[in-house]
Design a protein around this nucleic acid. Structure first.
Lengths: 348, 348
DNA sequence: TTGTATGCGTTATCAT
DNA sequence: ATGATAACGCATACAA
């Protein structure tokens, strides 16, 4: 039989035992004597046998794969450093466990739901990561109904039967506001992500709380969409106010970088006339001008942990929620004390 | 039989025919009479039957999935807008065809090879996309030996049995150089990607050819690594030369943006003292200061085409190489005529 | 057209 | 406790 890959029957034949025995032995399960077990191992090794993933999948009704669906306009996807890093983290764990990652990228939420249905119906995956949580997220109910094991990235704001792996973004935002307050800013604005995203909302709330805690009225908030284009518009609006902010806390780096450019385009100096903070600490953040003060989050580690938790759940283990260490605030050169108010007035 | 999903046998039973007949009917193949065919369709519909992906996989020895392995340091992955867009394009096609994408992210080339072996050995995928081609790419031989159907993104510089889907980056680079020459630059440098990458090399060669064609000696070239950090160093080296360039053609946007910052950090004005061009046209390119003159490539369309071609190949169709329309040169504000030489001398 | 064998590993059942 | 046997899952190919 040249070329044909050896099957479990071949191994059984060679070892002079039954298929069943081989299966038990190779899966390290009781019911096989030590001597036979060794004979089976030897035979398997000599034949170069390795299990057929497909046959295994069929007989165990498992996919040995996990799924991730990303719902974003494709062109914008590239701008966000989160997913690639997250996926890389997931991968390191999955590959150790012989699991694969099935990835889907869809343009909108409707396609996303169809995607989950399909992954489940076809049995492509044993579980999924649920990211970019939304306010009153309808995907929770869908996944529960489908019965697909799920790990959510952060905690949904509604009821959820799923384990959550969380990376609290509030401390980072709080640190940013506190830093700005400490160096003398009082008119601190926020460019938020969409409020229908849990992380858009939670960062905004953290900003508002930190402002209040500092005895300041939460300044103007412009809701944007995490994109550079959206930020350009939001920033322009804020800077056009009668009393423009002296500092802006952005909900991610991409918007912050775009914001810096917008300010400069408008003739402002950063950080002289406007301080800026970001969130994520993308690679580029340290290499823009001025280097961006931001919050470093470890998406890679998040991916690793989420993968481990989901694997455990898929294997039937209960798992309680996990909290990742929150992001660390990194001060670079895009923040500085505000110029004196007379100077500001002259400019605006 | 509550809860159990209907099998092909159930359908056969209900329609009063054999399993085989059902299979033929449902796959629209000859050998089933019209009347029976309709009976079978009705039965399948009533039972809500849908084919089991796993059983199909086993019996057809196909995975109904395609693979992509990305070998990059995870943290840097997020910076490059190419893969997310490419993947999104791939996905749109695959989902139409009921195929999945299996993604692997690995830190280095050794892990990548192991990855291909595993995908093939486990029969996880029916074919793969080969990206980030390298000079004398050893993966070609590996994939050929494994016998995994493959589509390469761009043409390898060695012999290759695989179909290539190409997006020529040379016209874009040529356009960038020509543009700079036209507005008066003569000392035009290049920050290249690693030469062991085909696209690092080809962009450099295009730069050199364009310079020669313009009657200019190809200026200094700094080989870098496509990252912001690498670019910062390369840019610093170029600007420290006795005769620093008045313009730099970068091999990608990320390096260009970092380069702009580096120049500004060094007290130079962009584009006043230094013109800069990029490559990719990432979303951010239009929203940095100054907005980046660059080459827009359509990674999304590239992904779609590559997916279609690979699907055809996997289905047994021969396919000849495909050429995508090359990137379009987009002029923004990071390029301008050079300042007079006296002004430059004063600065340097 | 139909019945049956095939692909492959897992697992429940049975005999020792 | 150890091992054999057979059923299972499901679509497809092929002989009947």
């Amino acid at each position: 039989m040249p070329g044909r890959r050896p099957t479990i029957s071949d191994v059984a034949h060679r070892a002079g035992v039954s298929k069943g025995a081989v299966s038990y032995a190779l899966n390290n399960r009781a019911g096989v004597g030590t001597a036979t077990r060794e004979r089976i191992f030897a035979a398997a090794h000599e034949l170069g046998w390795q299990p057929s993933h497909r046959a295994r999948s069929l007989s165990t009704s498992r996919a040995f794969a996990l799924g991730l669906i990303i719902a974003r306009p494709p062109r914008l996807l590239g701008a966000d450093p989160f997913f690639p890093s997250f996926i890389a983290g997931v991968e390191t764990v999955l590959s150790e466990h012989g699991r694969a990652l099935v990835l889907q990228v869809v343009p909108d939420s409707a396609a996303e739901k169809a995607g989950y249905r399909r992954l489940a119906a076809e049995g492509r995956v044993d579980g999924v990561f649920l990211s970019d949580l939304r306010h009153d997220d309808s995907r929770i109910a869908l996944l529960e109904q489908i019965g697909l094991p799920t790990v959510t990235l952060n905690r949904p704001d509604g009821p959820s039967p799923f384990t959550a792996v969380c990376l609290d973004d509030r401390p980072g935002i709080t640190a940013a506001v506190n830093h700005l307050v400490q160096i003398g800013h009082t008119r601190i604005a926020h460019v938020a992500g969409p409020h229908h995203f849990v992380h858009g909302r939670s960062r905004r709330l953290a900003y508002e709380a930190a402002m209040s805690d500092a005895g300041l009225a939460p300044g103007p908030v412009a809701e944007s969409d995490f994109t550079a284009a959206g930020s350009a518009q939001a920033t322009a609006e804020l800077l056009a106010l009668a009393e423009p902010p002296t500092a802006i806390v952005y909900a991610n780096d991409l918007m912050a970088i775009s914001g810096i450019s917008g300010a400069r385009q408008g003739g402002l100096d950063v950080p002289g006339d406007l301080s800026v903070t970001g969130f994520d600490d993308a690679e580029l953040a340290a290499y823009v001008f001025p280097p961006l003060t931001t919050v470093r989050t470890d998406a890679y580690a998040w991916g690793q942990t989420a993968a481990r938790v989901l694997l455990a759940i898929v294997d039937g283990t209960q798992h309680k929620d996990v909290d990742m260490p929150p992001g660390r605030f990194v001060v670079r050169a895009s923040t500085a004390p505000p110029s004196t108010s007379t100077e500001r007035q002259r400019r605006s």
